[in-house]
Computed example of a mutant assay.
Amino acid sequence: MEGCSKNNYNNNKMMMSSSRKEDLFHVIHKVPQGDTPYVKAKHAQLVQKDPEAAIVLFWKAINAGDRVDSALKDMAVVMKQLNRSEEAIEAVKSFRGRCSNQAQESLDNVLIDLYKKCGKVDEQIGLLKRKLRLIYQGEIFNGKPTKTARSHGKKFQVSVKQETSRLLGNLGWAYMQKSNYLTAEVVYRKAQMIDPDANKACNLGLCLIKQGRYDDARSVLEDILQDKLPGSEDIKARNRAEELLMELKAFQPPMELSDILGLDDDFVNGIELLVNEWAPLRTKRLPIFEEISTFRDKLSC
């Protein structure tokens, strides 16, 4: 009897040790427990490091209705890593109808990243504007002032102000990719008014450089190095600001026509009057300014 008792004790001890090891394995590799298609997909992705097998298993999980929200998002991320972003976009569009309402916002964020990866700037701009409208209507945060977000496995709280500014920053960068620097500037300045930070200030500085407005750009970038903005202590932001300021040294302000020719102002003004007479009639306001005004009005609605 005593021997049986010892054997039972040892067996229980081994089972407990095995269970602890299994639990520790799942914690270390961040793999859920179980034997479902989704669990197998995560195991292939994170433990076996086999993204192709993971994608096949994520498909199976979606078709089986196994953690569809997570399976679709994870599959899109893996596809993006394999440069299959176009396929990932179609997958998200096709299957997001099977996902919960709570997953739709994060799926929009996945799509924005995929559009950026594929260079689909117009689609990116359209989705960012839609998300901004939803925030204004109180639909994204469910009427609450904050939401819980996740990054690199850590949870944190995001305010409406922070999310709005982040989306505007992304929208400004999208306009930059279209070389629409005037609209990008309007968007960046709006973002900085809501929730300023050094990273967006760098992008605004670059936007102003692209427009040839070197003094304005210098003022924005120097605010970072003088620690006047949140995030100014970030090494990447400071290094980028310093690099852009170094580039500015290569630019000289454009000289006036009178300085170039050594002529007086009256002569220069006379030339401008003649040019205006020769030039075809046109409205003084360029179409781009109409676009900016329209966009500004939409944002302020």
Rank of each mutant, 00 (worst) to 15 (best):
T148D: 12
K13Y: 14
V39Y: 03
L274Y: 08
A149N: 13
E105L: 10
Q81M: 13
K21W: 11
K161C: 08
A88W: 02
L132H: 05
K147A: 01
P32G: 05
V31C: 05
M79R: 02
M15F: 11
R218E: 11
A149E: 07
I125D: 01
P37S: 00
L168G: 04
V186L: 13
S85T: 14
P287S: 01
H152G: 08
G65I: 01
A88N: 05
N7S: 15
A61Q: 03
K144A: 13
L208S: 00
R189G: 01
N10A: 14
D23R: 15
I288D: 08
S18V: 14
R96P: 11
L72F: 03
I125N: 01
K120Y: 10
N63L: 09
F289Y: 12
E2G: 07
L274V: 12
L82T: 12
I28M: 08
D216V: 07
K144N: 10
D195C: 09
A88T: 06
R20D: 12
M1D: 15
E2I: 12
I292E: 11
E247F: 07
E86K: 10
E123K: 10
Y136P: 06
P287A: 00
F25C: 07
Q192I: 11
L171R: 02
A191V: 02
E256R: 11
Q226S: 09
V68A: 00
V92Q: 09
K228G: 02
D265E: 08
K13T: 15
Y136G: 12
G205N: 04
Q252G: 07
K147H: 02
D50W: 06
M193H: 15
N170P: 12
K60D: 05
F25H: 14
R240M: 00
C99R: 00
G172K: 05
M16D: 15
D74Q: 03
R130C: 09
A53Q: 04
L245I: 03
V92K: 04
S232D: 11
D113G: 07
S94E: 13
G262R: 02
D108G: 10
L206Y: 11
P145Q: 03
C202Y: 04
M1V: 13
R296D: 10
Y175A: 11
M15Y: 14
I62C: 03
A44K: 01
A174M: 06
E243W: 04
L263W: 11
N199W: 13
Q177F: 08
L229V: 03
I288W: 06
A241R: 01
C118A: 07
E256T: 08
Q162R: 10
H152D: 03
P145H: 07
Q192A: 03
